[in-house]
């Protein structure tokens, strides 16, 4: 079926079988490989993307569900000039990246939270990350990075 939606700020349309997941369509049809397959059952969050600003697991969402909606993947997070977002910079500065496999989902989970509040408590940050597993970092520097990016945005605004 024909699915039309907004992907990383651009209107797109794709002809794909209706039973495919959003993850499969993003990876195989749009060749956006930033969203990963980690478990395929919605437990790990490596496939997380934002749909209308809400964090969802693209492995558990059928692609037709995003018709007429907006989808943001990690590829759409950086500014158009190729630089890094403040949150991405904070991930690097705070050492929040190790193997990198969870990182796209973590950045998007951070963005979803910072869209709600720029001054989250550490507990709120941990709750916002609860659907994204990381096996390398113990989460601490990811929490640090999100808190720092929020504080920085608060200062700028």
């Amino acid at each position: 079926m024909l699915i039309q939606f907004t992907l990383n700020g651009r209107p797109v349309s794709v002809e794909a079988p209706a039973h495919l997941t959003l993850l499969t369509v993003l990876r195989d049809y749009f060749h956006l490989t930033g969203a990963k397959e980690g478990c395929s059952i919605g437990e790990c969050g490596t496939c997380a993307v934002l749909v209308d600003g809400e964090l969802v697991n693209s492995c558990l969402m059928l692609a037709p569900k995003v018709a007429a909606r907006t989808v943001l993947t990690i590829e759409g997070v950086s500014p158009a000039d190729g630089s890094l977002s403040d949150l991405q910079e904070a991930f690097i500065a705070y050492g929040a990246v190790q193997c990198g496999f969870c990182t796209p989902g973590m950045v998007l989970a951070g963005e979803a939270l910072l869209a709600q509040t720029l001054t989250p408590t550490r507990e709120q940050i941990r709750t916002a990350l609860a659907g994204n597993l990381c096996r390398c970092t113990g989460y601490q520097q990811i929490v640090d990075a999100i808190a720092a990016a929020g504080a920085q945005r608060k200062e700028v605004n």
């Binding site: 919605g42 969050g45 964090l55 989970a109 979803a112 659907g131």
Partner: peptide
């Protein structure tokens, strides 16, 4: 239930 992604959907 679950995490944010599950709660959102």
């Amino acid at each position: 239930i679950g995490g944010p992604q599950i709660q959102n959907v």
